[in-house]
Design a protein around this nucleic acid. Structure first.
Length: 367
DNA sequence: TATATTTGACCTAT
DNA sequence: ATAGGTCAAATATA
């Protein structure tokens, strides 16, 4: 077990290191030339580099025994780390896989093993905007609960297309006790709804990644502009490599574990936030080789180039917010950002539950 | 009127 | 028994 449990892990380490090198070279170019690159750009590169190294080191340290890592696929149950405090008790993941206990009622009520991944979104303070991200998915709030030990209630959201299209994707938004500016968003299940190109979104957010129209249909919708109590409706997408950085918001994403990252994270900020994200690309990136390219393009422009969709098992988290609100918000963020604002996201994958569901539509339950 | 949110009750897992 | 997650009626908003 001291060895990498799987080729997959080894590849990831190599990939991370290669990526770090690539990024370092880019940074070098930026430094040499007085290019138009801004500090943010450089900082972004720096973050990426550090992240890559940290990640690689982390993999080396843990080199956990893998489960069955098969090939390139990410091993399903690895937890890298931590469970956020706020998420406290939740994750348990293992699923026994018994599905059995289903009562007749609603399967949906059962907390079964469902793949889930968490992202932390840091929003600049004072803006009052608690995160708004538009990943192109529409969410509808269906509940809110006070969580033991947490100062703020947790909001529960489901895909708006649940009934219409049977999309079972859900997410939970929990505001951090310590940092009110941080929201932990846990996604479950991937979207199965059909995509529908929504012009409005695109227009406003050019940066927004677009999932494939064919696979999943993320469509940018917005919903409750009005209230956001503790849980903003936001969407994050772990998968796509796009990060939008639109304002000065910075998004930092990290994935905790190589295994876990389902996909990528992409955040879209309508306006123009700056995002720093890490990638979790293992999965996402279908072509690992191109990763660097993607980054390059992203880094340079901060614009996403192409994404792939998530096909990764549907783990696609989203942050969503109403655009209408975003604009203003973003603007605010920009301002503040100068100094401090940042939106950071961290992904954590949860554990376990990736088993079979991971791949796609899960069987799980349908309404 | 249609759609989204709020909120208490209900259900399940621990 | 308790905490977390979901449902669904009531309410709010466009």
């Amino acid at each position: 077990m001291e060895n990498f449990t799987s080729d997959w892990e080894l590849k990831n380490v190599v990939k991370e290191l290669s990526q770090g090198r690539e990024l370092a070279m880019q940074l070098q170019n930026h430094l040499n030339v007085q290019s138009s690159s801004s500090h943010e750009t450089r900082e972004f590169l720096l973050h990426k580099i550090l992240y890559s190294y940290d990640k690689a080191l982390s993999m080396l340290k843990h080199s956990r025994p893998g489960d069955g890592g098969s090939g390139d696929a990410p091993p399903p149950g690895a937890n890298l780390d931590s469970s956020p405090a706020s998420l406290a008790g939740s994750p348990r993941s293992d699923d026994d896989s018994d599905q059995d206990n289903f009562k007749d009622n609603q399967a949906s009520r059962k907390r079964k093993a469902v793949p889930r991944w968490t992202q932390k979104v840091n929003v600049s303070p004072g803006t009052g905007i608690e995160g708004q991200f538009d990943d192109g998915y529409a969410w509808r709030k269906y509940g809110q609960k006070d969580i033991l030990g947490a100062k703020h209630p947790r909001g529960y959201y489901r895909c708006t297309h649940r009934h219409g299209q049977g999309c079972l994707a859900t997410k939970q938004v929990q505001r951090s006790d310590e940092d009110p500016n941080i929201f932990e968003i846990t996604y479950r299940r991937k979207h199965t709804c059909t995509p529908r190109a929504n012009p409005s979104n695109n227009n406003s957010n050019p940066l927004i990644p677009q999932p494939d129209p064919q696979n999943e249909g993320p469509r940018p919708l917005i919903q409750n502009p009005h209230q956001f109590v503790e849980g903003p409706s936001q969407q994050i997408q772990p998968h796509e490599p796009l990060f939008n950085i639109q304002t000065s918001l910075k998004v930092i994403t990290q994935d905790l574990g190589p295994n876990e990252n389902p996909s990528f994270d992409s955040f879209n900020f309508p306006p123009s936030p700056t995002i720093i994200n890490s990638e979790n690309n293992h999965n996402n990136i279908l072509n690992s080789n191109n990763i660097s390219e993607n980054y390059s393009s992203n880094l340079s422009n901060y614009l996403p180039t192409n994404f792939m969709n998530d096909d990764y098992g549907g783990l696609i988290p989203n942050l969503q917010i109403s655009e209408s609100e975003l604009s203003p918000i973003v603007a605010a963020m920009n301002i503040s950002s100068t100094n401090s604002s940042t939106i950071g996201t961290h992904f954590q994958f949860g554990s376990s539950e990736f088993g079979s569901d991971f791949g796609f539509g899960n069987p799980g339950y349908y309404p």
